[in-house]
Amino acid sequence: MSKVLAECENCPVHNTGNLIKLGIDMSDFDYVIALAGNPNTGKSTVFNALTGLHQHTGNWPGKTVTRAEGGFEFNGRKYKIVDLPGTYSLLSISTDEEVARNFILFGQPDVTVIVVDATRLERNLNLVLQVFEITDRVVVCLNLMDEAERNGIEIDVRTLSKELGVPVVPTVAREKKGIPELLRYIDEVATGKYKCKPRRIKKRDKKLQEAIEVLKYKLNNVFPNLPNSEWVALRLLEGDREIIKAVKSGEIGKILSPETTSMNKEAFRSGVD
């Protein structure tokens, strides 16, 4: 970890210099970043490190129950970043989890950064895999690397990135370690320089997969631009009320269509919660 960081000090990637911190002024922005993750993995700390804001952080799960927003500039592009409440899952819904899911699903951020706890990787990956079902453009921020090291946990970051199909950036957000790399990957994924191929869950029950295919076909007919019809189909089968409502009203097509202008996106975003 420390060796990698030392080398980074000298390479051109280390871009803290051109990171202009914008505080909360974000009247115009080019990309929207969502910050998701399990509770107490340090999302708010990462948020602060990226924006230079001082959102109060606390060492206990459930600190952030609403969204916090901020902004930063990197390589001349302006980013708006939204800190979401921590959630273990996108499948069982409580008010705070709904804020996170609705934002990733309906807000369609350009990049979703998932902050994971390096000391509890297995449980954290659950959420990562679920987010993969909704969106392709993900960067995994492997935070709390110092604690992992202290507890004798070694993580093969390269293999992990290969397995997941998205960039994985080891960080110690409290000490701002790894933040420049995180910024670079966010930028690459947002601009499409890095093509994510997130791992999708393969082994599904045959009957279920058939049902999904039927619904997917129907959904694609009615909403030709739906980017994640498979996920929507699955949620419909599970009887997710929010999704049923959005399909019934036709809203889901509008929200999820790639042609939606960023202004409409913005208007919807502010109405999500």
Partner: peptide, 12 residues
Amino acid sequence: EAGEIVKKTVKK
């Protein structure tokens, strides 16, 4: 899936 990935990437 999560378990499989961890088996490949994490050493304690």
